[in-house]
Design a protein around this nucleic acid. Structure first.
Lengths: 239, 239
DNA sequence: TGTACATCAGTGAACGCGCGTTCACTGATGTAC
DNA sequence: TGTACATCAGTGAACGCGCGTTCACTGATGTAC
């Protein structure tokens, strides 16, 4: 809203901080470009004068940083909401929820991920978000469906999903399949099964032909013994 | 160089175009930030006055676009250089070469990938680059080590590698493993095997425990029959 | 061979703009006496 | 209960900067006669 904001009561000055952050996020979402995030635009959107922003943020950088922290927080909440139940299924749910969030908030996601990190070290909100990812993977490692170091595995899975959504956002002109949800499922499955298979690889491998044969047998064994629909593995459509 | 450029001879005015593009790339590489790419800085770097840039580029957007086209071209060359031989091995080589290029030219890579695409459609240099990716995957499909639509498979593999390098570039503070080459190998393998396994998945799947058992058997079979060192599959260290 | 002219490859100076930021100021409101 | 004062929550106007871009101009060089 561009209408002038009514002045906060005494002791309630902090309220403006939240409203400024909200205005910044709305601006990003509606403008479709992070270049629209100027102090003037944010202040106008919040219904206050430009210098008012400095009452709550040291400079523009601090404002952008605060916006990012909110997005990390939302991502973290997304993960904790999707944990529980079968770990492999939960992992798939988390991946899909993450991807959906990114595609629904492409500009925020871009700002979050593409900004050169300001200082050394991971900010707390980001660290907590990552901790959720690692926990989701750890649960899978405990049930033996995946093996390896949970932190490294989490980074690998994160890379796969992030890669897909960031390319979808930045390079929409490539021949992506129509069905984005199916694509995300595809990626989550590839990452999940790739991780699961990778942990089983021996130090020596047969030539490609034998490899293909072993993969065929693996598929045949699953086909003959399975009962559950495909949608229940870590890329399944069911939630 | 900040030294003044000697004026080109008659008919050789186009030379400046190349020198401007070179100056722009050098600026990106050395400054470490795409914000350093201003017309003034580029012109000074090329040893000419600022308006001279307009002799070869309609505006700043056209210059940035041209820089991107050069990067796409380099990526494309990278792919065509690494094709040939066993398709699964070539795919791994391409993935690692791509990742290495991105990590060695992080700012150019960021500009290339993160910029909101200007118009509809894929620019020719990017399309050719992608065609190389699809060809590399197609060769694998022909030898049956991977199954599926080459374009979709290529997008999936691209997503995995891009995700890893873009996170490495933008979020270096996360607990990445020390050895970046090993990480890239890891990702390329996960993506490659995930894609190979995924194409074998039946429509119905067993519960996680049976899945883990089938994966164990798959691993055991490979371990008993293989001869080649691990480094020869599509994530192998050998090139 | 000389010379006027067209063209090419640029240059210097300036314009206008929007940005982040600063500074002195205002007006409402709670509080001490 | 009245009132002076401190504090809080902002505002209006301006500053300086660097940016993309434009415009009139320059000087070397090839070419026609």
């Amino acid at each position: 809203m561009t209408t002038r904001r009514v002045r906060a009561k005494r002791g309630e000055g902090v309220l403006l901080r939240e409203e400024i952050l909200r205005a910044a996020e709305d601006l990003l979402a509606e403008s479709g470009s992070e270049e629209a995030l100027t102090l003037r635009a944010v202040a106008m959107r919040a219904g206050v004068s430009t210098p008012s922003v400095y009452l709550h943020f040291a400079d523009k950088e601090a404002l952008v940083e605060a916006v990012c922290m909110r997005v990390w927080g939302e991502l973290g909440r997304l993960f904790s909401d999707n944990l529980g139940g079968d770990p492999f299924l939960a992992l798939g749910r988390c991946g899909r929820a993450y991807a959906r969030f990114a595609l629904e908030h492409p500009v925020q996601y871009r700002v979050l991920m593409m900004r050169a990190s300001p200082g050394p070290g991971v900010p707390p909100a980001a660290a907590e978000c990552f901790r959720h990812m690692v926990n989701a993977v750890s649960a899978c490692v405990e049930t033996r469906v995946i093996e390896g170091d949970p932190e490294e595995l989490a980074l690998g899975l994160w890379s796969a999903v992030h890669g897909c959504v960031s390319l979808l956002i930045a390079q929409p002109s490539f021949p992506w399949p129509r069905d984005r949800d199916a694509l995300i499922d595809h990626i989550v499955r590839i990452a999940g099964f790739g991780t699961a298979v990778y942990s089983r690889l021996p130090k020596t491998l047969p030539p490609s032909a034998d490899l293909a044969a072993a993969l065929d047998d693996f598929g045949a064994r699953l086909a003959s013994g399975g009962e559950q629909p495909r949608g229940t593995e870590p890329g399944g459509a069911g939630e």
